[in-house]
Design a protein around this nucleic acid. Structure first.
Lengths: 167, 167
DNA sequence: TTCTGTGCAAAGGATTTGCATAGAC
DNA sequence: GTCTATGCAAATCCTTTGCACAGAA
């Protein structure tokens, strides 16, 4: 299995869990029930999410597998450190998405329905390097978000407008 | 003067103050001492700034021209609405820069010294349109920040390393 | 004179921290 | 057993809001 773990056409040799265990060991940290619970939940689906959404989805207070709010925040940070998740800001709060074993990409963000649409562009990476070179800047990463309205929301708006025109 | 007000090679017919007065009138809002004070301060320099930095620079409590914290926040929002300032998030807080009369651009962000370096790329805008077109997405704007280390910080690091090597 | 704008203090939301205890190794 | 991790509650940071009073038009 370890040689075959794959996600969206990207082959990686370790599962997220294995990778995280490696990370923990290299830092003298421990694999605990809460960490495992959060990791399993996070890698069972591929949506973008924020801390609050995740906390809502995890078993709640009193239930088996309950993880405290602070621990969720701490754990998400560790996942980012470990290279499992990528974090970015959207409307003031932190949003997370899979990083480990997932191809580099950027986003279209619909301001109407808050949906994030992924896209990949090599051209953007070239542009990034070209720009950085000019300023003697050493690139470690970037954040590119195109804001606007997605196809569905545009269609919905059009329908609304038509309905109004009929009156 | 109104025909000649210029900033970085972009000619605009109204000064920021005039433009803001127009905006206020069109909305039945009033030109007040605090609003004028903040506007004059903000357009007297061209750096990026956040609310807190601005508040520190304005006359402080007790002094003439003092503007309350809440008013500064409210006023910055109005400037954004009026198209005078552009707002974006950096490390969780809002950062502002001149928009009115200033050419569209993006940023290199040095994670070492927190400096923002501006650059302009038509290619990026083309790329943005091309990407949006593919998804039938209606673009209203974008945010592109390249993170890394600026020339000076890289040089400083290199010096530090050399000094260590000599030991 | 009539509203809108202001300062103040309190509230807000997201995230972090201090601390005593639980639990990995 | 030792030392890290957890849950809790309180603290923090940035920003917004409610409200009585000040001040433009």
């Amino acid at each position: 299995m370890s040689e075959e773990y794959s996600l969206e056409n990207v082959k990686v040799s370790l599962s997220p869990l294995q990778r995280f265990e490696e990370y923990l060991q290299s830092r003298g940290m421990r694999m605990t029930k809460p960490r495992r619970a959060v990791l399993e939940h996070v890698f069972a689906r591929h949506e973008h999410f924020d801390a609050d959404t995740l906390i809502e989805q995890l078993p709640s207070h009193g239930q088996d597998g309950y993880v405290g709010r602070a621990t969720v925040y701490r754990t998400l940070k560790e996942f980012v450190d470990a290279g499992l998740l990528r974090e970015f800001q959207l409307d003031g709060r932190a949003v997370y998405e899979h990083d480990y074993g997932y191809p580099q990409h950027d986003h279209l963000y619909c301001q109407e329905c808050q949906k994030l649409i992924e896209f990949q562009s090599d051209e953007l990476l070239e542009l990034r390097e070209a720009v950085a070179r000019k300023s003697n800047f050493r690139v470690t990463g970037h954040r590119f978000i195109i804001t606007g309205n997605c196809e569905e929301c545009r269609a919905a708006k059009r329908r609304r407008r038509q309905r109004l025109d009929m009156i």
